[in-house]
């Protein structure tokens, strides 16, 4: 976010904190895509992601009067979204680890290994592999690789020590690489 956007955001936050719905709507428009994608990648369901995104923003509105700029506004929104997604997944009892060799294909059977790593298919395969990771590994990877948060920000957001973030990220990457190798049957190197 550039300086002008940051200034706009700060203004909208201040107005929304005083109870201005249109200022809050501007904040929603600024962050809706990011929050929606994060929840979608955590839950894997578009309908749930839509619902949870709305719920997250409504919770943010309620909590906004007490919000202080100790962290970035976007990070705070992601924290609310993450908690909402985690609650939903707990209710669905899908938080437990999915074994690597449960016989379910990660990719469509039609495309061959060469096509899988070409263009959009690569993203689809990565997306599917991500969904096979345990929640705690998936969330740190998304927060680091997609949201580009620092270890300090991730630690604060999920409520663990920075050292835990560091080791959890290493485990998540190793598990993801293993899944991708399993899918493509080849070594994944740039």
């Amino acid at each position: 976010m550039d300086d002008a956007s940051a200034a706009d955001e700060a203004g909208w936050i201040a107005r929304a904190q005083r109870g201005d719905p249109s200022a809050f709507a501007a904040l929603v428009r600024l962050h809706q895509q990011r929050v929606f994608r994060f929840i979608l990648r955590l839950t894997g369901s578009r309908e749930e992601a839509m619902e949870l995104t709305q719920d997250s923003f409504l919770k943010a509105w309620q909590a906004l009067p007490g919000w202080r700029p100790r962290a970035r506004f976007a990070t705070w929104l992601l924290q609310i979204a993450r908690n909402a997604a985690l609650d939903t997944l707990r209710r669905r009892q899908l938080v437990e680890f999915a074994p690597l060799d449960d016989g379910l294909p990660l990719s469509d059977p039609a495309p061959g290994p060469d096509e899988l790593w070409a263009g959009r298919q690569r993203g689809v395969v990565l997306d599917r592999a991500l969904r096979r990771l345990p929640f705690e590994q998936r969330e740190v990877l998304l927060l680091r690789e997609v949201e580009e948060l620092s270890y300090t920000e991730i630690a604060a957001l999920i409520g663990v020590a920075e050292g835990t973030v560091k080791s959890r990220l290493a485990r998540a990457r190793a598990a993801l690489l293993a899944l991708l190798r399993h899918t493509t049957g080849e070594r994944h190197e740039g």
């Binding site: 249109s22 428009r29 994944h188």
Partner: peptide, 26 residues
């Protein structure tokens, strides 16, 4: 491998909500 994996994240599908959520929330 780790560097290549990092680059792969840019290829993730970019899904968007179907409508203006700001309008709905407001």
């Amino acid at each position: 491998e780790l560097r290549a994996l990092r680059a792969e994240f840019a290829t993730l599908p970019q899904e968007s909500p179907d409508f203006d959520l700001g309008h709905v929330i407001e």
